[in-house]
Design a protein around this nucleic acid. Sequence first.
RNA 1: GCGGGUGUGGCGAAAUUGGCAGACGCACCAGACUUAGGAUCUGGCGCUUAACGGCAUGGGGGUUCGAGUCCCUCCACCCGCACCA
Length: 1010
Amino acid sequence: MEYNFSEIEKRWQQYWAKKKTFKALNPDDPEFGKKNFKGKYYVLDMFPYPSGAGLHVGHPLGYIASDIAARYKRLCGYNVLHPMGYDSFGLPAEQYAIQTGQHPAVTTEQNIKRYREQLDKIGFSFDWDREVKTSDPDYYKWTQWIFLKLFNSWYNIEKDKAEPIETLIERFRNQESRFTVDGFEKKWNELNEKEQSDVLMEYRLAYLSEAWVNWCPALGTVLANDEVKDGVSERGGHPVERKRMPQWSLRITSYAERLLKGLDTLDWSESIKEAQRNWIGRSEGTSIQFKIEHSELTIEVFTTRPDTVYGVTFLTLAPENDLVLQIITDEYKAKVEEYIHYAKNRSERERQADVKKITGQFTGAYAIHPFTNEKIPVWVGEYVLAGYGTGAVMGVPAHDTRDYAFAKHFNLPIKKVIQPNDPALANEECFDTYNGQCIHSELINGLEVTEAIKKIIAEIEKRGLGKGKVNYRLRDAIFGRQRYWGEPIPIYYEKGIPKSVDEKDLPVVLPDVDKYLPTESGEPPLARAEKWKYKDRFDYEHTTMPGWAGSSWYFLRYMDPQNEKEFAGKTATGYWQQVDLYIGGSEHATGHLLYFRFWTKFLKDLGYISIDEPAQKLINQGMIQGVSEKVYLPKSISSRFDFASNPNKRLIYFTTGIDAIDSRLTQPIEIYFHEYGSMEVPSDLDNLRQIILISEELINDSNRESVIQVNMDARLFENSKLDLKRFFESEKLLNINNPNANHIYILVNEQGSVIRRLKDESLLPANFEFKSVPEVEKMSKSKRNVITPDTDPENGQPGIIEQYGADCLRMYEMFLGPLEQHKPWNTNGITGVFNFLKKMWRLYHLSPDLSSQSEADSKALKVLHRTIKKITEDIENYSFNTAVSAFMICVNELTDLKCTSKEVLEKLCILISPFAPHLAEELWQNKLGHDGSVAYAGWPKYEEQYLVEDSYEYPVSINGKTRFKIPLSLKLTKEEVEQAVLSAEEIKKYIQGSPKKVIVVPGRIVNVVV
RNA sequence: GCGGGUGUGGCGAAAUUGGCAGACGCACCAGACUUAGGAUCUGGCGCUUAACGGCAUGGGGGUUCGAGUCCCUCCACCCGCACCA
């Protein structure tokens, strides 16, 4: 009987869907009482964004792992919640909408459909009744509701938790608080509505403020810090600049300490926890006030080294610091303004690119040293960040490398105030060690650094100059996006005052607009919806929420997805508690995973849920990388491309630039092409857009500068050689960016040139080979190296699923290596897994009727129980690759034993069902003759008795080197083993006389030392 | 610069507390069967040597009867953060 995987897999996928085999039960479900669950288990995959490219082979890696865990826990008797849904708001759909005019909801729906189709083919045990989509109004109603809760809450530092804003207003009323407005002190009740609103904005956890933001002109929106990488946007790689504008933000900084401390309780990888710790960036220090000479103003600095305060020789302010303009003297005004202008117009990227470059400007002002009363010059410098601390630093060049560099560059004095313990440092001009004593520091002379810090802080506090303080690198999260495809922020404006939409009016539904672009006056797209007003009168807020809003609480919605009255009912949240196993990529370390924790803590503070952390255990599956194929294009205008290494070859001149298959070069430019040789140049060539591709072997150091490297579709290549057949036939793979373009491709290699338009392979030089440079990198559409698990919709090539089946895909992805490790995709080993599945199938078909077979023999039972033990341990440790090996060993051995025992085969079938569920279900029901699904068959128990051995082949080492083996009874004592070994025939070769020492480890090894 | 991770055959990788290095699979080699195939089965397969043996877990050193595993030191690669005072 053939192993017909496609028929088997289709059958059981339909069966599971029809029977709702994987439905998870809430406690209020009538069925719940009938089950005798061992407990609950919540397995969650990170929320996927349904991109237009569909799933590639890397996506399922984590899903397969979580599915194995889910199926295993079900077999162990747990009520398993294993849901899936879509984080369906986001930039790519909107970018596509801008280009095509199609509503993002439409493309999103199409993408979701494709995702679902692909997910279904892999046989996951998701409870699809719980599917959620963040762009669904029934869902984002609750995202908006949580936003309102954030807006209407403040952080009570004394209680260390968030509270409703009313408790704050109550305090303001009762406590005789005074508020300074336009220079007048007023009581709360004396403030007008606008003034009250402004005061409360300083406290609300979701607030509107004038802030320095990461503005991305290409995307037309601001971005949160975690959405910017190396000065460019994470999505799309567009430049980002700093801009000051009114912005909605979330006061995540109030939770900094709790987010930091909570990490210690989590079973997450050290690298993710460390990334979050760095991102939060806690540092202890103190603030110190410096008076400005001839002025009422003071400059407050933050420092972690107050012990070096006597070493201060200058102060530096950030260019954005408002104080700068207030303190500059007339003499320096022009220069400082010029400098500020310069600094402001530098993009983040430029700024980061040359951090080594030192820039700054003296302001003309002087501060007074609070301890020595010396005059200290005040500078402004780019190296001081506006957003951290107070935007001002005290310059201690002798003990801070940045201050040192600045002082050196501008010739400022350097004053050493620490005597280091390490003599090697004593002669250095600058060192920042904590090991040493203070010198030249009146109040703290002779003290060790740590002592000095304590004493000087006490002194600073006593004199009212400042106080001990904790600073965080973490900034409040910018929450508004000047984009269309996101949750509307449920705020409206009445007389310029932002107010929350009434809860009963939620959801605020995303309105239709004529274009998905900003208005002419630069307002966000939502401003185009002219009739879109709250209560028909008031303007709504026009920015929308960022992509991470919906994913910050989705794990709660899965617990009770259809609830219309609450985001999730108390019974449901009380039962499911938190995620027991969360699997996803490590790229979310400082974004999603931080917001996810933040919202959970907030909802707990308000008493809506009872847990403090959303996910106890987190596993980051490694990335499956793709192999990109890079080819070369002449760099553009007027490059003369010269194969200098090979003077006999032809020369090609490019007199203008060229269009490229690379999206960065989208302008069509004509080229002229000359060649010495036999090739004919079509007469209409100059009317068409031409792309010249240069083979890898022609590139050398002398011409490398005149070419650029671009990705071609990896599917056109085989082992980094262009497959000419595909190249001639596949228009689609060539012109991803513009399928309608009528390009002419010219391939150039050592043998000459080929124009693709000729479309005739017979015209090719013999053995024409065009080579690319392969590179292993992230699998992504833009790198054109995506491999789909199923049939490729672009070229119709069958995928792994069609060729080998979903069970094979599942087992192969697990077999590839440890879950957490990154690995390039290659299918070289897949036949091994496929052969294994076939062999397993054959094992169950050795006998036509297993039900009448006799008792298992002890050998088969031993194999079985060893496997039960191994698989159970491996699953518990998420070591799925070794589990697959164990199955192979087991099936090989049972096949050798010609095992037809129903008892053994039944248990093996259950064991493998989390890994290869379709095969297992087929064998369970159709071969072993069971009625129900194998999914609830019960996990087999491992029994020690079958594994007990009575003899063992002791490896005998001489001086730690294994020389021979000797079978001995395990009942023997150490002494008896030693005796047996020393009297063995083989040992005579290695020792003369008596050995120095004999080490016997019972049941393991014998080592003889001579 | 700081932090995290990884280094084992031609390749993907195994290896409980330190105890037979390379399980399992791919590729390769030889053979069997054969309706010649991307089927199945048997055997071989780290390097080196004619063989005995010797050498091998990124390099060097150490602890130990015994080290891929523990300690020190250096190197390479990957990832994250980065003028955070």
